[in-house]
């Protein structure tokens, strides 16, 4: 892929990527009660990185984000599976999710749910897989 030499695009993306990433994380966290969740959050995260690809080229991004996304996908699936096993340890069926309210310092009354852990797995799997696909296709020359 050719590297575009576009000053406006580069300048805008530098800011936009941060916003998209923040938005992605927000989407993920708010997923429990508002629209969002692991799948969407993960994909939005990917969208940010894809923007970087388009602007800076794959090689440069790969150098700056030295992550093996295949492993990210695998980790995600493992996390999801293990949160399922977690229920079994307490004698509950596989993938049984629990939640409770915990009074944390600083955050105050906060809801903690194992479903969020599961969602982390989903998000990682989505990010890992999409990035693997995009990088392999984009890299093919």
């Amino acid at each position: 892929m050719k590297e575009p030499n576009d000053v406006i695009l580069r300048t805008v993306s530098k800011v936009a990527v941060v916003i998209i990433l923040t938005f992605a994380i927000n989407l993920f966290i708010s997923g429990h009660h508002q629209p969002g969740g692991g799948f969407i959050g993960g994909l939005a995260f990917v969208a940010a990185i894809v923007l970087l690809f388009l602007v800076y080229g794959i090689e440069k991004v790969r150098k700056n984000i030295p992550v093996d996304f295949k492993k990210v996908a695998g980790t995600g699936v493992l996390i999801a599976v293990f949160t399922g096993v977690g229920g079994m340890i307490n004698g509950k069926p596989f993938l049984y999710q629990v939640f409770g309210h915990v009074n944390l310092p600083f955050f105050g009354e906060t809801e903690m749910a194992t479903a969020v852990l599961f969602d982390v797995g989903v998000a990682l799997a989505v990010i890992g897989t999409s990035m693997t696909i995009i990088m392999s296709i984009g890299d093919d020359r």
Binding site: G84, F94, Q97, V122
Partner: peptide, 25 residues
């Protein structure tokens, strides 16, 4: 049931969690 106001998310991660797990797999 799931401590979630967002029912879509509750379906994904809790009620049909098994589906989601297999999907990401």
């Amino acid at each position: 049931l799931a401590g979630a106001n967002n029912i879509v998310n509750a379906i994904l991660v809790d009620f049909r969690g098994f589906d989601t797990m297999l999907e990401i797999l």
